[in-house]
Structure formats: C-alpha cells, structure tokens
Design a protein around this nucleic acid. Structure first.
Length: 427
DNA sequence: TCTGGGGTCCTAGGACCC
DNA sequence: TCTGGGGTCCTAGGACCC
C-alpha cells in the first residue's frame, strides 16, 4: 500500500506557525515577485480567491476581507519542510519515504496489516502535527494514483474524515472514483481533461478506470496513459523513487521587479542566475556541458499595451563539462550580447544547464592543472560561506552590486528558523 | 526490374507535476 | 503597472553508423 502525506495549505501554515493573530483569519502567500497567489487557507478559498490567480486581480477582495498576505519566504518553508520530512523518515523508515515536493511525500506501507492502516495513518498525522506544528492529510491506497485520490477527498471534508482516507476494498475505491472528476486525477492536466470530456464523454475517474488499457496507451500519451489506467485499477505501476539520482537539468529563472531595458542589468541578472545554477550543480557534484540562456520580452511598439510575452533562447555547448562559476560565466555572458536588442523591455531572464555529468575535478587531482585544483578549493569556500549565511554574500562582480532589477518581495515575514538575527522572540 | 535492416544518439516539443 | 519557478517523462524524427 502507498500513502501520500500532504501538508495542508503548506506555505500559509508556515506563516501561521509564528503568528497566533492569524490562526483563524484567511491567509494567502504569493509567488516570487508577488505575482500570483500560490497558497491559500480554507478561509481564503471560501472567499473565492482562486489558485494561481494574479494578486493584483484579487487585491480588492483581499483587502475587503482582511486577508493576511505574505510574499514567499523560502528560507522558512524549506526549513519546516525538512522537519516534516525528517519526522516521516523517522516514522516510516528512511527507505520507505519518497519526498515528492516541498510539501508532499509518498510512503510505502508494506509491513502494516490492512486493518491497522487507519490507526497507522492517524499516528503519522498526529506525530507530524505535534512535532512540527504543520497539519497534514493522509491518503492510503493500493497505488500512488489512488492514494492521491484518497488524499484529495480527505481534504475536501476535513471534519468527517479527520484528514485521513484509506481505500482498501473495491467498494471504497469505486465510491472514491465516482466523486473524482477527471481533471482532479494526478496525471491528467488541462489538455487531457478537455480531450476526455469533449472527445470521449469521460467525466469522472470511474469512467476512465473502466476504459481498456490499450485505449489509454493510444490516446493518453503512450505508456503514460497505460500506467494511469492500471493505477486507477489498483495495479501499482509508478514505483517509489529514491533521491540518489541527480538532476538532469538545472534552471534558475526569475521575473524582474520591473522591466529591464539596459544590457548591463540584463547581464548582471544572467550572471547572478548562472552563479546560482552553478551552485546547485556543485551541490550534487555534477558538471554541465550545455548552457541555455533565455530572455522574455514584452514589446508593444506602436500598439496598445498588451501582455504578450515572447521568449528567445541562445545556447552553447561547452568544449568540456565544468562546474566552475567563472567558466560558466565565460560562456553564458556572450549569449546575452547576442540576445540583447536595444529598446526591448525585458520581463524575465533565465539560465538552464544541461548535459549534466559527474564532476571529475571534484577531488584534488594530480592530472588537473594547479590552477584548476585551486579553483575547486575556492568554489568550495564560497559555497560554504554562502550556505552558512543563507544568502550569496560572496559573489562575482559581474552579478552586480545594487541589483535594482531584483524581484519584489514586499510582504515577506521573518526567516525565524534560519537566521539568528531574525530569530522569533517571545517576550 | 530490382536498392536493407538494425541500431544509437541527440534534440525539439508536448504533456504533466507542485 | 501588474500574471512564478523548477522540474520530470515520453515520443517523434533526423543524423549517423555498419
């Protein structure tokens, strides 16, 4: 059996943890650059605040109803996420936990007798809540897709279910699938949902479950559709994934606080993102052979203002894989010159690293030049300093010093658990 | 008159997730 | 004036090899 443990309104719950004044008030958390609403409490949902809705479109509703608003505070969320995951690993055993996202984990519950699943789920839920202060929902079923179905339904009626749902019998599964529209199935996005309804008249998970596997293979993206239908039938096809694998692509991209028009600032931003991506690369002991730099513009010369972003990419394949920031910058920055057009308004830029391989220069190495060995030590020192400060206090000058293109974060709360000077105080 | 088959590697693009 | 960021997996098709 699989369980999915999912934190309720995770970012909002993190904010509430340190602020009793908003325990019973609606709360929302915004995406980077204060653009969209990415987390809402039940009270905020009830008011009609949509998921991923632009903030400025909901501002009135939010102000009228005294909703607490926060910019995202990844230092805080990341740290609390680690505490939740550590608790789950303690409870289920490290080898039975797959961290699926910042606020979700799959658990493999093999050793637990069927009639003990419910108490086990309750124990997990109560322990996490007691140890971390974060509320969670638990869905348990014979496959990952079905556990997601159970989890979603448990959240829909929190009082009746106590945020726990276990699907064991055929009847329980059937009832749950009846109540699940296709667009709420894990693995069915907007495109497939539209296709299922319009083209095939399939509206709920029960109908989809009863389609032949071959049909799924033909119409829902090959083996992806095949697996989906099998999973809905209770045959697990999506196995647990363990975090040994390295990332195959590393990206750092950001919107600007306000549109950028000067080449100098565009380059600063790309240098900053390259440094950040290089840091992620080194953290998994990899090197990259491929750099893709892209920019997003919103130009409307002569026309009326229109939100119509256009993206342009330039990429380069390096002569050899590297994880040194200065080498990556050396190849990345000229791409900005190629992309830049005077007069354009740049909204966003990004850097993607690909062709990722294990980093062979990681050990001091007799066959590397002395300069390279020194640089390795330098990178390590920089990474250590920046990590200990949870900020890039040591950086390349090409990243800029003032950085007035940086994203907006006007309503960020304190980094209570990761910064000494922002430690939460009780008076 | 007749012109193979099997394989790898790479990239672009489409779909999805939170 | 204002709409996030960071990923994954899969397929098709082209280049190239013997």
């Amino acid at each position: 059996m699989f369980a999915i443990v999912d934190c309720n309104s995770f970012y909002c719950s993190c904010e509430r943890l340190f602020k009793p004044a908003i325990w019973n008030k609606p709360v929302v958390v915004l995406s980077n650059n204060d653009g969209c609403i990415v987390s809402r409490t039940d009270e905020a949902k009830k008011l009609g605040v949509g998921m991923a809705a632009p903030y400025y479109q909901n501002k009135e509703l939010i102000e009228e109803n005294d909703v607490a608003v926060f910019s995202s505070n990844y230092n805080l969320y990341g740290d609390l996420s680690m505490r939740v995951m550590d608790t789950l690993r303690y409870l289920a055993g490290e080898e039975n936990v797959e961290v699926y996202s910042v606020d979700e984990a799959f658990l493999k519950l093999e050793h637990i007798p069927i009639d003990q699943l419910e108490p086990a789920a309750l124990h997990i839920k109560e322990t996490v809540e007691q140890w971390t202060g974060i509320k969670v929902s638990v869905g348990v079923a014979p496959s990952k897709v079905l556990s997601k179905v159970a989890n979603r339904l448990s959240k829909k009626s929190k009082v009746a279910t106590n945020c726990i749902m276990v699907l064991r019998t055929e009847e329980e599964i059937q009832q749950a699938l009846f109540k699940t529209p296709v667009n709420d199935i894990w693995g069915v996005g907007g495109r497939y949902a539209y296709k299922l309804k319009e083209q095939y008249g399939i509206y709920d998970a029960w109908q989809l479950r009863n389609m032949p596997v071959e049909w799924g293979k033909k119409n829902l993206g090959g083996v992806v559709g095949e697996r989906l239908i099998k999973e809905l039938n209770g045959t697990p096809c999506i196995e647990m994934k363990y975090p040994l694998e390295n990332k195959k692509m590393i990206a750092t991209t950001r919107m600007f606080g306000k549109p950028v028009t000067e080449l100098k600032f565009l380059k600063e931003a790309v240098a900053t993102y390259t440094s950040r991506a290089a840091e992620k690369l080194r953290r998994q002991s990899s090197a990259a052979k491929f750099i893709d730099v892209f920019v997003v513009t919103n130009d409307y010369e002569g026309k009326q203002y229109q939100y119509d972003p256009q993206s342009k990419h330039k990429y380069i394949t390096l002569p050899y894989a590297t994880s040194f920031t200065n080498e990556l910058l050396h190849y990345a920055l000229p791409l900005v010159d190629k992309l830049y057009k005077p007069g354009s308004r740049y909204l966003k830029a990004g850097v993607m690293l690909g062709g990722i391989v294990p980093d062979e220069s990681i050990q001091g190495n007799l066959f590397l030049s002395p300069a390279k060995n020194t640089r390795r030590t330098l990178m390590e020192a920089v990474d250590n300093i920046n990590f200990s400060q949870r900020d890039d206090v040591v950086k390349y000058v090409s990243s800029g010093l003032t950085r007035n293109w940086k994203m907006r974060q006007e309503m960020r709360s304190g980094r209570y658990t990761t910064r000494w000077e922002e430690l939460f105080e009780v008076h």
